[in-house]
Design a protein around this nucleic acid. Structure first.
Length: 308
DNA sequence: AAGACGAAAGTGGTTGA
DNA sequence: TCAACAACTTTCGTCTT
């Protein structure tokens, strides 16, 4: 492995980094820069393809957070020295707390076992790469340890973690797909996704519409030329600032729709809308914007004439 | 008859006071 | 915490092919 356990501050290059567990931040003591949560996530990406021993590595892989969990409880229950000072009721209280600690930790173990099984199921249903599954498992583990599952169903947090992992690895799956695979309502998946990423301080880059093109194109059985034309259209659209603030799937769908028209491989708005998980209306809106700004009318007319 | 178009009203989330 | 707001959806009537 790449053995870079010594993290450097990207600002000043110093190695005096301080990890604030509560906040999940990394702070550089030299220049005061908050290097933020990315540092924690980096080692996940190095550990991508370690195939067989996934389970065991997962356990040993996150010492910092496991210790955090122990610390939290440890201070609540008290040190051994305190035990001698206690009597009667107090002693009982102490043992009751100990019992609780035991129960909680086994509860977490059990929860994790179940959840990771569910996560594996959904992940294989969606044919996600191993690296994404690993990341999702880590995210979920963190979520459990921070008690973020309370008040939410285990399944929805699993779905949210998977969605987040997909986004971070540029392997976008739509909320609809996650929803279908996990049996959790789309709203709920989105909600827990946002909640979990915010609480864990995971930064998510807005997903790139181009990442969706390949998948959409193949389920619509469109040619490779159509596909690359769609990507080209997307690039131009981005330069014309047609993409900011809009849903990436809608833009990808519209670009694909136009591209199909140009190449004489027409698909109905309905068909495109279905695979992209948006409505025809959205495609129409994006489509119109594309035509207005990028003057693609000519190209469409060209192929129309060719047919005659 | 199917597809494309667009208006109008509703939903869920973000933002800024 | 609440209201304004933007993006997107649903629904539905009309036009086009």
């Amino acid at each position: 492995m790449s053995g870079d356990f010594v993290k450097k501050c990207p600002e000043c290059g110093g190695i005096n980094l301080f990890y604030n567990k509560e906040k999940g931040e990394v702070i550089c003591k030299d220049c005061g820069l908050v290097v933020e949560e990315k540092m924690v996530d980096f080692d996940q990406e190095w550990r991508e393809f370690d195939g067989d021993s996934g389970e065991s590595k997962r356990r040993t892989g996150a010492p910092m957070t496991y210790t955090q969990y122990d610390q939290g409880l440890g201070t609540e229950v008290g040190q051994k020295a305190d035990l001698y000072k206690l009597e009667g009721k107090e002693k009982n209280k102490f043992f009751r707390l100990r019992k609780w600690q035991y129960r909680i930790s086994t509860a977490i173990e059990r929860n994790l076992k179940l959840a990771l099984a569910e996560l594996k199921r959904v992940s294989s249903y969606l044919k996600l790469p191993k690296s994404v599954e690993e990341e999702a498992a880590r995210i979920y583990t963190l979520a459990v340890q921070r008690g973020l599952v309370r008040g939410r169903s285990m399944e929805s947090v699993v779905a949210g973690s998977l969605y987040a992992a997909c986004r971070r690895h540029d392997v976008p799956r739509t909320l609809d797909e996650l929803s279908e695979a996990s049996g959790i309502e789309k709203k709920e998946v989105g909600r827990t996704y946002r909640f979990v990423t915010r609480e864990l301080g995971i930064t998510i880059l807005p997903s790139n519409p181009a990442d969706y093109i390949a998948r959409f194109a193949s389920s619509l059985k469109l040619s490779a030329e159509t596909q690359s034309r769609a990507i080209e259209i997307l690039e131009r659209a981005q330069k014309s600032e047609l993409t900011s603030g809009r849903g990436p799937t809608g833009i990808a769908a519209a670009a694909l729709y136009v591209s199909a028209l140009i190449h004489g491989e027409k698909r109905t708005q309905r068909e495109v809308a279905d695979v992209a998980g948006v409505t025809e209306v959205t495609i129409r809106n994006r489509y119109k914007e594309l035509l207005d700004r990028l003057k693609l009318e000519k190209e469409i007319k060209k192929t129309k004439k060719k047919k005659e």
